[in-house]
Design a protein around this nucleic acid. Sequence first.
DNA 1: GCTGGCACTCGTACGCATCGAGTGCCAGGA
DNA 2: TCCTGGCACTCGATGCGTACGAGTGCCAGC
Lengths: 338, 338
Amino acid sequence: MLSERRLEVLRAIVQDYVGTEEPVGSKALTERHKLGVSPATVRNDMAVLEDEGFIAQPHTSAGRIPTDKGYRLFVDKLAGVKPLSSPERRAIQNFLDGAVDLDDVVGRTVRLLAQLTRQVAVVQYPSLTRSTVRHVELLSLAPARLMLVLITDTGRVEQRMIDCPAPFGETSLADLRARLNSRVVGRRFSDVPQLVQDLPESFESEDRGTVSTVLSTLLETLVEETEERLMIGGTSNLTRFGHDFPVMIRPVLEALEEHVVLLKLLGEAKDSGMTVRIGHENAHEGLNSTSVVAVGYGSGDEAVAKLGVVGPTRMDYPGTMGAVRAVARYVGQILAES
Amino acid sequence: MLSERRLEVLRAIVQDYVGTEEPVGSKALTERHKLGVSPATVRNDMAVLEDEGFIAQPHTSAGRIPTDKGYRLFVDKLAGVKPLSSPERRAIQNFLDGAVDLDDVVGRTVRLLAQLTRQVAVVQYPSLTRSTVRHVELLSLAPARLMLVLITDTGRVEQRMIDCPAPFGETSLADLRARLNSRVVGRRFSDVPQLVQDLPESFESEDRGTVSTVLSTLLETLVEETEERLMIGGTSNLTRFGHDFPVMIRPVLEALEEHVVLLKLLGEAKDSGMTVRIGHENAHEGLNSTSVVAVGYGSGDEAVAKLGVVGPTRMDYPGTMGAVRAVARYVGQILAES
DNA sequence: GCTGGCACTCGTACGCATCGAGTGCCAGGA
DNA sequence: TCCTGGCACTCGATGCGTACGAGTGCCAGC
């Protein structure tokens, strides 16, 4: 096991490297941190840390930089989560309070997160798997053409066109609308299928075809809506990647365009608490030199979606984690209010 | 005026530079193009072209590269629009045909355009200034709480919550819904305000407050909806910018994040025909080393929105213009069908 | 177990010479 | 008048050798 001081040395290395972006040597370390020992001692400690795989040298006669494993230890044992200052908290709240609809909430969240962390922000739209139906509306556009509008409790609205197999009267329509709503409003998406299963039977045989069509469209929409969406922002922060950024940035930009990859990435994060994936811990190859800090957020106790940032492994973990957590909290509040 | 041959030399320079990304010299030119004259003659021509400001030397004793003015001449006089091959056209159509809703159409268009041009694609959502109302729906969520749903002919749906000043009966609601729809359905957004102006007067005095609230919310929504939205894709193509890309990419990424800037940029493009803005012709400073190829698209004769690509000034103009035009056409078709 | 001392490594910076693509200019020829 | 071949010149790129110095590992001594 590593002694207290060696951990202290590792912490100092991580902090300095994150700050200066340059390999840090034993002398500089003792100067910038009061470790109470001489450079020679630090050198010995560094040799041990290197043996254990926490730090590495880019080349023989250079300082050390933390490895992914080093950052992992730093995040797990050595670093706390740095809370935001209260002006920052107020700024977050003010900024998010101005949002007018769901798109706006997500959009503002992305911008906020990118600005606070100076990294790439990724925000997943509130997932609908746990959403409930607020209202289902049926409109008649033409004798045999309906429009289905689904409104969820997270404020999303989806509409679908339906071509009916047979003309459908205004009274039948009102009837269907009323029965449908009385059954599904307030229910979870996942419960809807069995709740409406027997609806067609209670209609006249001439209307059953249409009712079935409507129902299957509704169910389809529910499934589709469960597909998750993302918003991304702050990509220009990728330029702060460091000197080697021309090489790194390409695969990262590519990964960011593949929303499927990002969704999977966020999906792997724990539902509660914060998840930090460092470098090669990320399955996707393009993100092997980045770290992802993600956290769930939601309007109630349950997380309805995730948000996070993507940045170089050499990032300010405590600060980033603080910002991500704070933003997630406030977004949750905003969603709960609306 | 420039002689025929000098224009030919300029064309050759642009083509070679676009291909090789390196300053092109007189000897290389005569070897790769059959100009029928010797390098020395070409040198003289190049000297003239340089005097006129169409080409420049990065440093003495280097080849020439086209200036913005040179590209401008090339685009205006020397280059056609390269039509796509028919397999490409078929691929476009197939890909776009699979779209299920408006978001999907725009999303697919962005990906398609980015892939075809290997540049950053920007697609504006169909604008609603010329859109018409397909349906307005009013739902009662609570005694004094309504939901307004607006459906447009471009397939967009927007909803707003309304807190009524006074409880609003189910009959009044049905009445308002019916009258509202009979007046505005099929009408353009811009015509709506005067069409509903006198509606409150025809209601009982106790309901007038609510009717007014509903109407003002509707008008607000129409205005807000006219605000334009964008989708962007293919940012990873920025890495193909060339050797100096680390410097260039930053401001470009920043500009791409400012949708307002991009919307203004697209807005400046001509409604019909293609607009090419080269380098410093772009007002936004961050885009001074990029060219923007934009074109309007629409479901009918009128352009309802614009789309385009952003790339290095050193781009394949004929090919890019061809792709942009073709995509715009097919998107227009898709929109017209739906 | 910590410290100072010391030899060693190796990447970086700098100066210098070389190379060659490309140029401008000029005199001669169609 | 316009084109061409020839020629001297420019200047960035490339390569090499040297000096420098930050940083290391190791060791003897406290």
